[in-house]
Design a protein around this nucleic acid. Sequence first.
DNA 1: CCTCATGCTTAGCCCAACTAACTTAGTTTT
DNA 2: AAAACTAAGTTAGTTGGGCTAAGCATGAGG
Lengths: 140, 140
Amino acid sequence: MRDDPTHLAEQVAVELRHLVYLLRRYSAGQPLTSQQYGVLGSLEHGPRRMTALAEEHAVQLPTMTVQINRLEDAGLVARGTDPSDARVRTVELTAEGRERLQNVRRTRIANLTRELAALTEEERATLAAALPVLAKLGRS
Amino acid sequence: MRDDPTHLAEQVAVELRHLVYLLRRYSAGQPLTSQQYGVLGSLEHGPRRMTALAEEHAVQLPTMTVQINRLEDAGLVARGTDPSDARVRTVELTAEGRERLQNVRRTRIANLTRELAALTEEERATLAAALPVLAKLGRS
DNA sequence: CCTCATGCTTAGCCCAACTAACTTAGTTTT
DNA sequence: AAAACTAAGTTAGTTGGGCTAAGCATGAGG
């Protein structure tokens, strides 16, 4: 039973499902969906093109078009054009979008922080140690 | 910077997003969706009632009704009745459903196992240690 | 009985993903 | 230089998965 990858895989699968449910519970009732917040986050460091956004979010272009349409209607992002290539549309945060992003991120981090603060210091250290391992999953 | 819950929260948030994308990539193109496999898994140890399934999957009853309808149409589950209360519908796996569940679980665990086998023994131990901590999140 | 609560389904809505088809703008080929 | 191809986005249409509201039985209590 010691260091059995299959047994570990089963336990990981169980926890992943738990986390998915947790995330859904957290994002219920928010003004924007978690996908939309994710897109706003991608725009934090400057304008991006549609293809870049779609690829980063593992989504097809039409899906991203619809998301950006909604965010544009809500006044949170603005479309622009690339002077060197008239085919590409750029997307950037509006002032309101940036503000919304900061607010959401603050409260979300605050929630998570509260959960983590309820753990022992040792548990937090255990979690912190595992993060780089989680990051390696799916990179193969 | 040592044991800073806020800083840890930010890193955890990043990894959670990574895991969500990973899961979506894994379940793309499967004959059933991950939700439907999840429901099949709940039926592994015998019949359940609709309310129990809905609660376990953190979903409203109508949503579960639709899911069970689809699984029933596909011949993977069968509805029954509770002899002691004519209001409740029970749901159980058909032989085909059980077979499908076993196949899917095998291949999914196999995939995860392959990923985990690519890690070092120490990394697996780190991950295993963190699982109980992850399980505690959201229980507050 | 009549009323109320419970378990489930139906109907109708919205969001998020997909593919297919189209438009427009660059790039290559001849 | 014109034709053919490729690339970037958008639009249209479908599917899945979630929700609430409303309806229909059935069970439980006055």
